[in-house]
């Protein structure tokens, strides 16, 4: 029967399509594996000779830094508070700037030109490392935590804006359409449909960014942005490895504390 033959042909073509896609999949996998191998080779990671002295050196360094020396702990309170303040203020400023930028950058926000412009701003903010932002702001406003928090804010705005835009793009549009069919304004759709849907993910990535910024704020201390990082780099410069180890432990404690706080906040918002 002609009809049956037609159907058989159609089935064969569907199956052929499937095998073609599988072949493409394997080819892509092999290409990716090759690219990764080249990257390792290029970074000199296969040059085994260079690993010869690595372990002994690390052990010597570890030995020199043990036991940790907490004797100057009284002078760490202020730098620690500075680092914490930098991370909090940087994250809050970034979240405040990233919210409108991310909303504009999200595909389907309504105006393609504006959305591309917002994306460009976010990409620029993000592609300049926070260390570079830090050097710029130290020159602009002087030493201390202020340039640090401005640097964190700039770089984090780029990161958070990108994440916010992606979260907004994944929002279910159906509840918003229901609102629009009732004659509700665009702003109200954002408030009553988009916001409740994105809130848990936004809280999640913002808390994650805060945790990241505590670590980043430490590094910024190195270039004169104050905080515990300055103490750490000073200890290294003075070869006071045991004090450096103590500072690293303190930092670890702080980051762990913030992770615990973040987990608690997440549990509250995701419930």
């Amino acid at each position: 029967m002609n009809f049956a033959a037609d159907r058989a042909d159609a089935v064969v073509s569907v199956l052929a399509d499937g095998s073609r896609r599988a072949v493409h999949g394997y080819a892509g996998f092999v290409a990716a594996a090759l690219a990764i191998a080249v990257a390792f080779a290029y970074a000199d990671a296969f040059n085994l000779v260079r690993y010869r002295d690595a372990l002994p050196t690390i052990l010597v360094l570890l030995g020199d830094s043990l036991p940790p020396d907490f004797s100057r702990w009284q002078s760490w309170g202020r730098p620690l508070a500075e680092t914490l303040a930098m991370s909090i203020c940087g994250t809050v400023l970034a979240a405040a700037a990233a919210a409108p930028l991310g909303a504009l950058a999200a595909q389907g926000s309504g105006f393609p030109v504006v959305s591309h412009a917002a994306r460009l701003v976010l990409n620029t903010l993000r592609s300049i490392p926070d260390l570079v932002w830090g050097i710029m702001f130290v020159a602009a406003v002087g030493f201390g935590p202020l340039p640090g928090l401005l640097a964190l804010a700039c770089h984090s705005t780029g990161m958070l804006g990108k994440f916010y835009a992606e979260i907004i793009e994944h929002v279910d549009t159906a509840p918003g359409e229901a609102l629009r069919s009732h004659g509700v304004s665009r702003l109200a759709v954002l408030r009553f449909s988009v916001l409740p849907q994105i809130l848990p993910r936004v809280v999640d990535v913002t808390l994650y960014r805060w945790e990241h910024n505590v670590r980043a704020a430490t590094v910024l201390g190195v270039i004169g942005a104050g905080g515990i990082g300055l103490q750490l780099i000073t200890a290294f410069h003075l070869f006071a490895y045991r004090e450096a180890m103590a500072l690293i432990l303190v930092l670890l404690g702080l980051v762990t504390l913030i992770n615990v706080l973040g987990a608690w906040l997440r549990a509250r918002f995701l419930a």
Binding site: D172, A174, P175, E177, A178, S181, H182, G183, S193, Q197
Partner: peptide, 15 residues
């Protein structure tokens, strides 16, 4: 018109 109209959606369209 929209003020006087309400719609029940096929896929619920709830949050």
């Amino acid at each position: 018109h929209r003020r006087r109209t309400a719609t029940v959606f096929q896929d619920h369209a709830l949050i």
